[in-house]
Design a protein around this nucleic acid. Structure first.
Lengths: 165, 165
DNA sequence: TTAAACTTTCAGTAAGTTTTGAAAGTTTAA
DNA sequence: TTAAACTTTCAAAACTTACTGAAAGTTTAA
């Protein structure tokens, strides 16, 4: 397989994988294109590379910027906007962690918090309900803490932790 | 809020949350119903509790069984099949980990493995491609290892690890 | 100013996913 | 056996999410 075919395959695959990560295909593919690009790309470059519409390209680039994964790059003397993504995978992972925490963890905690308002005659059924919801909450808080630590950590900390494990 | 309203809200919420976890709504809701039930439920019980069709109930119960989260329970003297889920959240988390690893991590490693077949004249571009794909692979393998450890671990191990962090 | 170059929005359409329910299949017990 | 009780399958319908492309908006520089 030659380089351009490899890149092509990687971009396709990254798009598919993205969907199982809760990231839409175009968003993941744009990220892949930028990751493999040798210089910042314009919206048009992206449209062409992936054969997608202007609206789609624009919206997903913006999403990637909201996630803090892609940056605008201004090329001196050029009017057009260019985009690039960092090639540091650790930084990427940390940013993705924040977003997934926001989407997957925080809403659980919110719902479980509300379950504390359940009241009524004390009974075994009520007791069990409280136990189950509390167990889930305790666990979720722990996961939340781990992800927070990961986010705040640097690569070395993580590697050291792995050693300890 | 009284108990039955609390349960109802929890079941609804668990369904919605499920979708942001890559689990479909009915599957997550069935899990919630079983989690809060005081005894094993039949397909009909589930259909009624969630107002869903037989096909939907059947398919998603089967999915939950494939994930190892729900078990068939045979009630002596009864022809019908009943289903139950464990109330141990740690066990649940570990089983979910296996499935998510299968869906989210393993396919990445497979794609990255294929990227090793990229060949051609040595150039800076090729070098960079190799670097990026290798970085992602290294990181992914580390995450994979952590998840494996978690899966194989018990609750205490995890709690101790949290202390160290 | 103004008009050219560029970016963003959004209503309509397309694609993908989930759900339904009736039909087919299976098991059990009489 | 066979028929009743139950489970599974699957094509079509409903729902959800993503994408398009033209129109509206914004910025820049002459």
């Amino acid at each position: 397989m030659d380089l351009s075919e490899g890149k092509h395959q990687f971009i396709q695959a990254w798009g598919t994988l993205g969907t199982s990560w809760g990231i839409n295909k175009a968003m993941a593919q744009i990220h892949a294109v930028l990751l493999l690009a040798e210089k910042p790309l314009s919206t048009e470059d992206i449209m062409e590379a992936l054969q997608i519409s202007r609206g789609n390209a624009n919206m997903n680039v913006r999403n990637l910027m909201d996630w803090g994964i892609v940056n605008k790059v201004l090329v001196p003397g050029e009017r057009k906007e260019y985009f690039a993504t960092g090639k540091d995978i650790w930084a990427l992972a940390r940013q993705v962690t924040v977003e997934r925490k926001k989407r997957e963890i925080e809403p659980i905690l919110k719902v479980l918090g509300q379950m504390k308002n359940v009241e009524g005659e004390e009974s075994e059924a009520l007791e069990e309900f409280r136990q189950v919801t509390k167990d889930i909450e305790d666990f979720t808080i722990k996961v939340d803490n781990v992800l927070d630590k990961f986010y705040k950590s640097d690569k070395n900390w993580f590697l050291k932790l792995l050693m300890k494990m």
